[in-house]
Each structure stands twice: as structure tokens, then as C-alpha cells.
């Protein structure tokens, strides 16, 4: 059974359109220490593709994408 990773910080960006959830995530990651897992809630369907793409390019770690009721919870760990 996979270990469940808990977020250290959660951003509720539901109702916000592209690029709102990503922008909120980037701004938050800039402020937290390395190792922190930030979870962003997005009801914008594009975020599930866009945020992982951003994380890969920015060399941050995508730790999970969870489908919740009407939104996705996307967890990203700050690694640098």
C-alpha cells in the first residue's frame, strides 16, 4: 500500500480559471522552505495537465494528483 503524503500547506483555488491555480501555487512555493509539500485545489480542468508540466520544467516534484468531488487536489514538493 502506498504511503499517503500529507500536504504542509493547502491553497483553495477552486473557481479560479487558468492560470490562477498555477500562479497561486508558484507564489506560495516561493515563500515556503525546501521540502514543503503544497497542495492546490483546482476546479479548472487544465490544471491537471498544466501544473505537472510546470513542475517538471521548474524541477519541482509532483507528488500526487487526487480527484476529489468537482476538483483536483495537486500536491507539489519544493525541492529547490
Amino acid at each position: 500500500m502506498a504511503e499517503t503524503i500529507h500536504a504542509d500547506k493547502t491553497i483553495d483555488a477552486r473557481g479560479s480559471y487558468c492560470p490562477g491555480p498555477l500562479m497561486e501555487l508558484i507564489k506560495t512555493l516561493k515563500q515556503v522552505p525546501v521540502g514543503t509539500v503544497v497542495e492546490v485545489w483546482s476546479s479548472d480542468a487544465g490544471s491537471k495537465r498544466d501544473i505537472p508540466q510546470w513542475a517538471e520544467r521548474a524541477k519541482q516534484e509532483l507528488v500526487y494528483i487526487r480527484d476529489e468531488d468537482g476538483y483536483a487536489a495537486i500536491g507539489v514538493r519544493k525541492v529547490k
Binding site: I26, K30, A58, Q60, K80
Partner: peptide, 8 residues
């Protein structure tokens, strides 16, 4: 923090 694919 982030690495861009193009500088500008």
C-alpha cells in the same frame, strides 16, 4: 527557483 526554457 524555477528554471525557464528560454531566458527572455
Amino acid at each position: 527557483m524555477a528554471e525557464a526554457t528560454a531566458p527572455k
